[in-house]
């Protein structure tokens, strides 16, 4: 029997799965979470198994993470998304010590050690300001696809001050700016600077340690990454598929857990 390890990241907007064989990623899958997390979790598991040509019983361990992780009934273990991201990030970029995760509901800043253990962290709290949800609101106002927003901001030529990273006020401020005739690219660049300032306040409270990475859906937005780099004055590493690092980390934890269990038995 081939040994597979499944990592599932059940986010509030999107859910992701990574299937590993020994210590190699075999396949991955992502889809909107929707209203039924249990069904979505099963769907992701079935999709990755289908792509890998494997069966349910081939999975030795499943680790779930993300806000919906506790409803994944077939998961053997649940971990927080920060611990999962930490393992995923250190696997891809071993020099990283500070991670900014821009998820749909929350933004988080956390420090990790060389083994991918969580050292300290801060979350953005109940308010959605500075989170991925604010990006979605702006995309709606500007009638843009979320994936094209980042590149558009990079074309900005005029500095526009945007006063808030709040998801609710950002919408009304964007509407006012459009009425003033501000160009989309300038408006977006200004919005990203406001968002970056809010994330920076979180990061400064925690204390930063190089090297730095950005993960989560927000890290796929090149305009936001650039705004963060401009504010900090140093380079931010964005791992490949930054929205998948928590699912990857969860799969790595699954594999590690099995290795430890075998070691204990021996």
């Amino acid at each position: 029997m081939t040994a597979y390890y499944l990592g599932l990241d059940m986010g509030s907007a999107f859910s992701k799965g990574v299937l590993m064989k020994t210590d190699r990623v075999v396949t991955s899958y992502a889809c909107p979470t929707g209203g039924e997390i249990k069904v979505t979790a099963e769907r992701i598991r079935d999709e990755v198994l289908l792509k890998a040509g494997a069966a349910k019983q081939d999975i030795l361990k499943t680790v779930a993470t993300g806000y919906g992780s506790k409803t994944v009934f077939f998961a053997n273990v649940t971990v927080t998304d920060m611990s999962a991201h930490a393992k995923g990030v250190i696997h891809l970029c071993p020099s990283i010590r500070t991670v900014v995760d821009i998820g749909d509901l929350y933004s988080k800043v956390f420090r990790i050690d060389s083994q991918g253990n969580l050292q300290s962290f801060l979350l953005s709290g109940k308010c959605a300001g500075g989170s991925g949800r604010a990006l979605t609101m702006i995309a709606k106002v500007l009638q843009l696809k979320i994936e094209e927003m980042g590149e558009i901001a990079l074309r900005s030529t005029k500095k526009v001050e945007f006063s808030t990273g709040c998801a609710v006020f950002a919408e009304s401020e964007a509407v006012s700016r459009i009425a003033e005739g501000v160009a989309k690219e300038d408006l977006l660049a200004g919005f990203y600077r406001a968002l970056a300032a809010q994330l920076n306040a979180l990061a400064e409270r925690l204390g930063l340690e190089p090297d730095y990475a950005m993960v989560g859906g927000g890290a796929r937005n090149a305009g936001l990454v650039k705004a963060m780099e401009d504010l900090y004055g140093f380079e931010i590493v964005v791992p490949p598929d930054p929205h998948m690092t928590a699912a990857l980390g969860a799969a790595l934890i699954a594999a590690e857990t099995v290795r430890q269990e075998i070691k204990v038995r021996q």
Partner: peptide
């Protein structure tokens, strides 16, 4: 937010354990 608070607590426990 209970969910937010307990998520933070879970992450803190993972930190203590590491």
């Amino acid at each position: 937010s209970e969910m937010d608070t307990r998520n933070k607590i879970d992450a803190f426990i993972e930190t203590l354990e590491s």
